[in-house]
Design a protein around this nucleic acid. Structure first.
Length: 155
DNA sequence: GCCAACGTTGGC
DNA sequence: GCCAACGTTGGC
């Protein structure tokens, strides 16, 4: 079992929007960064991920999702009308691979970035490193448990 | 809106 | 392969 964090700007896709979709599941499309893509590629079905809201009034972890389908070819790379169209990618050798996620829980209140920064055990986590821009990143089980303890989430 | 930090592009 | 220029990210 691996643990991840997926970033999204709520004005483009929020946990609220995910919760309103049929079966509360969606393909995590649009990632166009190779390091993030490599993390997406290594995700397995049943891995868990935090859903993080960035570039918004109160950035932070808004909930939890589960990986329900792995190794999906991101369909938007072949769509000329999509913001994420990549003319250099071909169906024979697709560049952008992603996963499908399903909502597990919405955190109310969210775990704010400010709160995460205040926690000593998390200081080495990539998310909190200066200049970090990765939109898909891993957590150790310890980091995951540390954050879970701050949420109302119960198994 | 500002700005620092980073990734990508493209000329050489 | 280098590196300057540019575009993007994301917190504040």
């Amino acid at each position: 079992m691996n643990y991840w964090l997926l970033k999204s700007e709520p004005k483009s896709f929020s946990i609220k929007k995910l919760s309103l979709l049929a079966n509360q599941k969606d393909v995590w499309d649009g990632v166009r960064n190779y390091q993030a893509r490599n993390f997406l590629k290594s995700m397995k079905v049943d891995d868990l991920a935090f859903f993080y809201h960035s570039s918004c009034e109160v950035p932070g972890i808004a909930g939890m999702v589960k990986i329900i389908r792995a190794g999906i070819v991101d369909p938007t790379q072949f769509d000329p009308c999509s913001d994420y169209y990549d003319p250099k990618s071909t169906p024979d050798n697709p560049r952008w691979i992603t996963v499908e996620v399903k909502l597990v829980d919405t955190f109310d209140p969210i775990v704010t970035l400010a709160k995460l920064k205040s926690i000593k055990q998390l200081e080495d986590w990539v998310l909190l490193k200066k200049g970090n821009r990765l939109s898909v990143l891993p957590l150790t089980p310890i980091q995951w448990q540390t954050i879970i303890a701050l949420t109302p989430f119960k198994i």
